[in-house]
């Protein structure tokens, strides 16, 4: 073929190389960021808690502690606060809270519960009705901070409804027999969750509420009208 003044801009190979370079560069950047992120979101352990180190994804043993979701002055948004608040929205890692009657779960026990709960969440497909960390389906409430939902608290209706005295027992009871405790016409079905799986799931939910989600969902449970407790259907 006779090539007159040919410009690189119309050269196929030039664009092919550009595509390869751009893709390679973007991929490398992504891989580098992934390494950094992996470091930051790897799960902590009890030692971190003992040393008062706040992890984005804390140890499974947070189930031994009280959890809140408060405004953090430095971060400029709400963060999970574990074991008490220092007044500025930082975790004190002091105040314990009983979880199914105990607050001394060892690392191993806590890990096992979380493992069971995570497996159950996948085996029962929670994510195809609910959102977890905001991802999933939009048929039922977001579970990111479900542990902190006022409906489960002392002033909420769920403990009385399920006849239990603690949040975790109420949740476990609900998860096993959701059809028995309907609060809306749109009910959660019975998924054959066993008592053990229910405990694992509640541990999973409590742990998820301690993940630092950069302030999502905003104002969870803080807005008065939002906690006018479950009216009926």
């Amino acid at each position: 073929m006779s090539r007159k003044k040919v410009s690189v801009w119309s050269d196929n190979r030039f664009w092919q190389r550009s595509a390869i370079w751009v893709t390679g560069f973007a991929s490398l950047l992504l891989i580098w960021l992934t390494f950094d992120t992996m470091g930051q979101i790897s799960m902590g352990n009890q030692k971190d808690i003992d040393n008062h180190i706040t992890k984005r994804v804390p140890s499974a043993t947070v189930i031994n502690y009280e959890v809140e979701y408060n405004m953090n002055q430095n971060r400029g948004h709400e963060v999970p606060v574990i074991g008490g608040d220092d007044g500025k929205g930082n975790s004190l890692f002091k105040v314990k809270e009983k979880f199914f009657g105990r607050d001394d779960y060892t690392q191993k026990e806590a890990n096992a519960l979380l493992h069971l709960g995570k497996l159950a969440s996948q085996a029962k497909n929670c994510m195809d009705c609910h959102t977890l960390l905001g991802n999933g389906a939009y048929y039922a409430p977001d579970l990111t901070k479900a542990w902190l939902d006022p409906a489960w608290g002392k002033n909420g209706p769920m403990q009385a409804m399920t006849g239990k005295n603690t949040k975790e027992e109420a949740m476990a009871e609900f998860l096993q027999h959701p059809g028995k405790y309907p609060t809306h016409a749109r009910m959660m079905p019975n998924l054959g969750i066993t008592p053990k799986e229910a405990i694992g799931l509640v541990a999973f939910l409590k742990h998820m509420s301690t993940i630092d989600t950069n302030g999502f969902p905003r104002g969870f449970g803080k807005i008065k009208e939002g906690v006018v407790y479950a009216k009926s259907k």
Binding site: A140, P141, D142, K145, A146, D149, P150, A151, T183, H184, R186, P217, R218, G219, F220, G221, K222, I223, E225, G226, V227, V228, Y229, A230, K231
Partner: peptide
């Protein structure tokens, strides 16, 4: 989200 803070109840009020 903006008014009721994304709780269980907020979800159903909106639904």
């Amino acid at each position: 989200r903006a008014q009721l803070g994304a709780t269980w109840n907020a979800f159903f009020v909106a639904q």
